[in-house]
Design a protein around this nucleic acid. Sequence first.
DNA 1: CTGAAAGCGCTTACAG
DNA 2: CTGAAAGCGCTTACAG
Lengths: 337, 337
Amino acid sequence: MAVTMNDVARAAGVSLKTVSNVLNDYEFIRPATKQKVLDAIAELGYEANLTARSLRSGKTRMLGLVLSDLAAPYYAELASKLMKAASARGYRVLVEQSAARKDNELSALKGTFRQLTDGLLFTPLALNADDIAANSGRKPVVMLGEHIDDPRFDLVTMKNTEAASAVTAHLLSSGRRRVVILGAAHGDVGGSNGLRLTGYRGALAAAEADYDPALVVPCEWRRDAGAAAVGNLLDSDVKFDAIFGLNDAVALGALHELIIRGVKVPQDVALAGFDDIEEARFASPSLTTVAPGMDEIAERSVGLLIDRIEGAETSESAIHIEAGFELKVRESAPGKS
Amino acid sequence: MAVTMNDVARAAGVSLKTVSNVLNDYEFIRPATKQKVLDAIAELGYEANLTARSLRSGKTRMLGLVLSDLAAPYYAELASKLMKAASARGYRVLVEQSAARKDNELSALKGTFRQLTDGLLFTPLALNADDIAANSGRKPVVMLGEHIDDPRFDLVTMKNTEAASAVTAHLLSSGRRRVVILGAAHGDVGGSNGLRLTGYRGALAAAEADYDPALVVPCEWRRDAGAAAVGNLLDSDVKFDAIFGLNDAVALGALHELIIRGVKVPQDVALAGFDDIEEARFASPSLTTVAPGMDEIAERSVGLLIDRIEGAETSESAIHIEAGFELKVRESAPGKS
DNA sequence: CTGAAAGCGCTTACAG
DNA sequence: CTGAAAGCGCTTACAG
């Protein structure tokens, strides 16, 4: 049905191999021959059959992206940027949603999803490092995010601790002393939650403010969970004058609940988030947050993964990359006035 | 390297064809033979090579999804639902971002993207019906959204006109008379903008309110564009007491600008959007909008496309499906009090 | 520089 | 019910 390399070879009066050579930019090929082939390709409207190429070469030129939920704003923005970065290097991205479930993460890691992709950008939320090491196969995997910080894996992440510390310090600098941290539990150490909690505690210590476990409030990193957690807090007798939501979704959920309850932001309670999703800029009041260098994360994770796939990066030891961050001061937590 | 069907055949002591028969649920196969094959598959950990299967069968079991920008909340939520619906039927979704550019839409329609997918869910924004008809090839395409309403194409869409009319009627019912429509131009007829404008005009007429072209304000359907358009409007001498943003992003951008300018919502200006993205529920004030039946759209568009691919749907004439909608009355435009 | 041939791992007529 | 063979459209040693 479709036109094949054989058709091109016949039309150009050369062998199959010659057409292949032209297609794959083989160096030593007579210009006249090359032109004949190119003419035939143009005339017949030939396009390489990607499936056949994949079967033979073992490469699909697709990158797998595993994340919990594409509808979460941070992941949606990240996926969009990753796809653009991959596209610029001639790769496509195939997305798999895990719902943060262990079984889904596992099947993305070892199932047919891996066949379809030359390498994986993996945001593990349920699996631990040993699970991953035991099931990641031979194709390259680059960890995205910060749940897994392990010398066995390449990792592209953000400066969680430093950025969380900067946000907390900013809240404290305006005179707040009772800063709720929303989305971590007292005692968390690993993962984004643990790292950000560490940054929070560091900033408290630096400002000689007390750390109060009652202000460490666990909740899922979604708007509804943030709203519910703040509701419970307001119903309790815990006093606070600021909230640090561990991502923007949580912070925006919190904002919603505060306003409904008649709590003024930032007058009564200052509020900050983490991620700098676009929505943060347009909230009312606009949300103070930290931009975790998403462009850099997208660019470098795709770059690293493709370098691994193509053998341009051969480091035996895992490569860890941390993108820079930037505090975005907005209305929900202005600087001291 | 990997274990193949041949290995399975050898281990089970049967021919290749028999393994294939088991794999493809061929009916007439002796239970004992089948069991031998299944045992061998389990023992060897055999997994079918999808690429080889695709090359031979011509099917990839992937659906293409073409949209302008995965980071736009509506598309992010839709893509997530489409992927889940496809997954439930054993298909994956490969996403292509067009940036609403004609060249990108065209290459998604006729380029290698089509090879990789058995059918297309296509949200055309730049291409017209004739362009599409001329380039859509032989594999099925289902239009998503409403830009193209043409008897040549299957289409799954929402009740644009009726929903827009319902929103406008709601704004009018609370006594507003000067309703800005944000995101359409006077004279638009086709596309979401045109259809929604028609609904708006219908509601005005039904309420015996005047249609004033000065209230029809074009802008891109993004937060920043909505904010800018409202800024211009406030700087002009156009008077208005309500705004209908043609999607939630525009409405939320408008909301941001209104609040910055000290305009009270809904007291001074009532505001409504379109889409019911999750963000709308958590805005402050929460956004009155219309839910366009996204679950139904996802479910039915995937169902229709797969039925076309598998030949379960053979209708010669194009199938048009309109999902139901639901008005979501929230704080930004409450009912009459 | 170019050609003839093998083979990637499946599915599918074609026999029996 | 099952087997031997062809072939999907490429890439890649192997010769020349």
